Simulated scan of single mutants.
Amino acid sequence: MGTPAFACTILQRLLNENCQVVGVVSQPDKKVGRKQLLQMTPVKELALANQLPVLQPVSIKTEYTDILAWNPDLIITCAYGQIIPDIVLNTPVYGSINVHASLLPKLRGGAPIHKAIINGDKESGISIMRMVKKMDAGAVMAQRKVIIEPQDTTGSLSDKLSLAGADLLMECIPLILNGTAVFREQDEAAATFAYNISKEEEKITFTEDVQEVYNHIRGLIPAPIGYAILNQKKMKFHRVRMKRQPHAYQPGEMIGMMDGGYAIAASNGFILVDELQLEGKNKVDAKAYFNGSGRNDIGKIMQ
């Protein structure tokens, strides 16, 4: 049971290891883009490519009878996106487990990778846990740490975590099946939460320390992508670096080219934008932007 690309790595590993996947459950397809074309979830695409049956309940709380009809021995979830009812969780002989992208009880919720980077954490990881009705609160069987590098984005960290999750899962499944798996309850007092990114959180503020601004921007790459307002239009930041350096510029002031990127002033340093996107335009690199409107934007203040 999963929805985004992150979960595809898990499904693919199960198939590679010749696990008998009797069915796949994913979120309903969504309309995307200006033309509002219906797009399959990445997990559904992978499932159909491997001739696996797929169910996409709008609400799994009431639409679960077809899942029960598969009579699964074990349910594995990874970034599925709905709260699964007890009648489904309790059906398999070996229970239901979840591959979660944090070191629980830290960062329960739907955006643990985004928030780990935004928070400036030095490490993240994978937790294999028993599924319960409460969000990411089940007993944990195994964990594996993954270092967050200074240049990591949500995209690059997702790739590392999905591979670590697939590896750890394949170590855990035999222990679950032979009855030697040990699950330990989480410390509720230590729980923190990583709720899905809100529209308000996509807005970048340059008044904070340059490290915090940098963390915020790279935590939103490759999606949903952070932005600020210039000339009353959005500028989205697709690839950035940071440079810590004292200066007398105003926060958000457009500086021009610096070390190969387009510099924007933050507290105690600069954000060097390597790739950006102006509202209604395609993505461009820093030099192309500077040679276009960017030269005239020097001295303006990002809002």
Rank of each mutant, 00 (worst) to 15 (best):
I264Q: 04
D259W: 11
I225F: 05
I217C: 02
S293F: 10
V210K: 03
I255K: 09
T207A: 15
Y227N: 04
V273N: 05
S267V: 10
G226F: 07
V213A: 03
E253N: 05
K287N: 11
P222R: 13
D209F: 08
I298N: 10
H238S: 00
I298Q: 14
P222G: 06
G280K: 07
G280Q: 11
G219L: 08
Y262N: 04
G256Y: 06
G261K: 06
D274I: 00
D274C: 01
M258Q: 10
G294H: 08
G280P: 10
V213I: 13
Y227T: 07
N215I: 04
Y214N: 01
E253G: 04
A266P: 10
A288H: 11
E253K: 07
Y262D: 05
A228K: 02
I225G: 00
K287C: 04
I221Q: 06
K281P: 03
G226T: 11
N291H: 13
M254Q: 15
E275Q: 09
G294S: 08
F270T: 01
Y249F: 15
M257Q: 10
N231P: 01
L276F: 03
L276V: 02
P222D: 09
I225V: 15
G260M: 13
F290N: 12
G260P: 13
I264W: 05
L230T: 06
G280E: 12
L278S: 05
Q211Y: 08
A286F: 06
D259K: 14
K281G: 02
D209K: 10
P246G: 06
R295C: 07
A228T: 15
P251R: 04
V213D: 02
M235V: 15
E212L: 11
D274T: 00
A248L: 12
F270C: 01
K233N: 12
I264Y: 03
K283W: 00
V284C: 06
E275W: 03
N296R: 15
G219C: 07
A288L: 12
I271E: 02
L220A: 12
T207V: 14
E279A: 05
G299H: 13
Q211N: 13
A286P: 07
L278V: 08
Q245C: 13
N268H: 15
I229N: 05
S293A: 14
Y227C: 05
Y262P: 07
G260E: 11
I221E: 03
L272G: 02
P222I: 07
E212G: 00
K233C: 08
S267I: 08
A223V: 09
G260Q: 13
Y289S: 02
P224H: 10
E208Q: 14
F237A: 02
A223H: 13
Y262K: 06
I204T: 15
G260D: 12
E202M: 15
M258F: 11
K283D: 00
R244E: 15
E202I: 14
I225S: 05
G256A: 12
H247I: 04
N296S: 14
R218P: 00
K243T: 07
A223P: 00
N291W: 03
K283R: 10
Q211F: 06
G269T: 12
G280W: 06
Y289C: 02
